[in-house]
């Protein structure tokens, strides 16, 4: 898993994405001093937050010697932000997770504990067991960042839909290719 993908070598961006809804608990956790301190200690320079429909606004900052913080609500170019990031911190939606993994980016998935039907942690837990990402909750995020060893993560091999297509074809009586 590569760290910097070209560009300014000294710039190391952490990109946070909450997806199409809101996840204020994550944005609030990112805004907290100990999370920012841990990120700075790990050598990251910029923090960019996609906050969706959330109402909690993080504090912007451009001070020297601290993490530069910026945020926006939505963007049509999430892919570009993912590509330019060194570390992605994402909500547990499968779309975000697989888009990030396919770009071979280091990823921490934060599970929204406030959701009623909390099946989302199933996928994040499974992929964390397989060492493709780290899994955290808003409360444990700073601990996860301080403990993580990004070099121990394994690249994710994208899946393949051909077996499903073969099953469907066989069922319907189409000859095998």
């Amino acid at each position: 898993m590569g760290n910097e993908d070209g560009g300014d070598k000294t710039r190391r961006v952490v990109f946070v994405t909450v997806g199409t809804t809101s996840f204020d608990a994550l944005v609030r956790a990112m805004d907290s001093e100990h999370v920012k301190k841990e990120l700075l200690a790990k050598g990251y320079t910029n923090l960019l937050i996609q906050m969706g429909r959330g109402s909690f606004l993080p504090t912007k900052s451009e001070r020297e010697g601290s993490l530069a913080v910026d945020y926006f609500t939505f963007s049509s170019s999430i892919a570009d932000h993912l590509r330019s990031a060194s570390l992605v911190i994402s909500h547990a939606g499968s779309g975000s997770i697989f888009e990030t993994l396919r770009l071979r980016k280091q990823l921490i998935v934060v599970v929204n504990e406030d959701l009623m039907d909390n099946h989302q942690s199933e996928l994040a837990d499974e992929l964390a067991n397989r060492k493709h990402l780290y899994c955290a909750s808003p409360h444990t995020l700073h601990q996860t960042i301080s403990d993580m060893d990004l070099n121990s993560l394994l690249p994710y091999t994208p899946g393949d839909a051909t077996p499903v297509a073969n099953h469907i074809n066989r069922f319907l009586g189409f000859p095998d290719d």
Binding site: S94, H119, Q120, E122, L123, V164
Partner: peptide, 9 residues
């Protein structure tokens, strides 16, 4: 096709 997000149930 059950979603990839469903691992246990």
């Amino acid at each position: 096709v059950e979603s990839i997000a469903r691992v246990k149930r």
